[in-house]
Every structure is written in structure tokens, then in C-alpha cells.
Amino acid sequence: MDGEPGRCGAGVQPRRLTSPGCGSGLDSLERRVRLPSRACGFLPMNYLPFRLLNDRDTFWGLLWSRRLSGSDLLRLMVFIMVACGVYGAIMAGWRSPRLSLYVAIKLPLLFLATTAFVSVFNWMLGLVFRTGLDFRTTIWMVFSAMTLASWILISLAPVSLLFMLSGVPALGTEAELQYAHNGILVTHILVLALSGVSALWVLREGLVRLAAPGCPVGLVLLTWIGMFAFVGCQMGWILRPFVGSPFYPVAFMRPDCLERNFYEFVFGEVMPYLLQGGR
């Protein structure tokens, strides 16, 4: 494995790691998680976000054996900030360079703030469901999922850039601008949804590998995702605009951002509108 970073985890079914207290298990794990000394081509495979992308077997092993430090976590955070920043800049680029800069700051903030808000509760849920995960491991798992979501965002940045440069006119009639805004909005929603699904995939993988045998992995995952979605929607609501509407002035945050919440908007305006047939 040492000579082949990025290959050892390919195609294997998720398997649960045994207790770190077992002597022979620990020995084999030590062999398994040893960091390879050489990089693969010009890609820095030892860089933790790369390892998480290419060799998650080893990554879960490192996490399980507590060989990941605070500075490693910081590396993941920096990666999330850069990747989300780049994608954020593209996301609002069609509207104005100023909004582009704002969203380059706000999108990483949305990811990191949502994680920060839900971490304690997710850890408690883990305790209730007897996952056997401590706070540190829970935090690591959540940031790992966010890192994978960021990988998806950065990899789709060229695609979003194409749609921004070739699909969205900056000028036009009201109907044309509305169509362009809706089109780019749907594009970004699909990209963000895809990144969310990939994060979910990694969270599930992490739980299967690291949680105690017999714990309800599906239920834990469901509650974690529910919590992420609940808080994430509100954070997104507060930090809006992200894509930027052509009918509103460019601003870092809307003046009414704290006046009501996302759910009041959905149940107070969107649902009645839909139930009345759009009248």
C-alpha cells in the first residue's frame, strides 16, 4: 500500500474498524495507515484533502488511531475555505464583481458556520444512539464530509464558469433577466445538491467504519442530515444573497436578513402561494 497511494481503498465494501484496544488489530492498522513517503506524480498525495479524496481507507484508519492532529483539521478547514471561496466567486460572478467577492467570503462562512452550530448536537445524538464516537471524531467526520463536498464544488467550478460566461446575459428585458436568473439559480442548486449528496456518502462511510457495532447508522445519519439541513437553510437565509437577483441591489446581506426566518418564509408565503395555484 505504501507505494500505491490512492489505490488501496478502491472498490472495497465498507468495513468496520475493530477496537483500538485489540493488540493484533492495532498492529495491522499501524501497517495500514503508514503514510507513503513518495507523492503520486505531481499531486501532493500526502496532503490531507487529497488523501481523503483518493484513499479514504487510510484516512479513516488515521482518524481511528488518533494520528490526526489539530493542524490537520486546520488544513481541511483551509481547503474548505479556498474551494468554497472559488466556487462562491463564480456563483455570483454574473451579477457583479462586488457580489462575487462577497459570496467568495459568505459561502465558506455558510459551510463552516453550519458545521460549528450543529457539531455539539450531532455529537450528543451520537451518544444517545450509542455510536461510541467522541466529540473529536464527530467533528472530524463532519469536516471530512464538508471537504468532500468542497472537492465536488471546486471540480465543477469550470462547468459553472461556462454557464456563467455563456448562458447568463447581464442585460436584457425583465423576462430575459428573470429566465437567466432562474437558469443560473437551478444550475447552482443542482451543483450544491450534488456536493451535499457526496458529503452524505462520506458521512455514511465514516459511520459504517467508525461507529460501534450494532448502532443504528441509518438513523444517526438521518438525524445528522436533518440537523444540517435545518440549520443550513436558516444560515443560507441569513447570509443571502448568494446568486444575486437582477432586481435587487448588490449587498453583502439583505437589510431584512434577521427580521424573519427561512421557515416563516416557506410556510407563510411559498406554501400558501403554491396551494392557491400560484395566484
Binding site: G6, G9, G11, W151, I154, L156, P158
Partner: peptide
């Protein structure tokens, strides 16, 4: 090209 590299890795077949 970047998304193929990333998607294959995320999907578990790097």
C-alpha cells in the same frame, strides 16, 4: 476533466 477525477474518487473508484 477535473470533475471526472473527483467524482470517480468520491464514488469509491478512484
Amino acid at each position: 476533466f477535473p470533475s471526472l477525477y473527483v467524482f470517480s474518487s468520491v464514488g469509491g473508484a478512484p
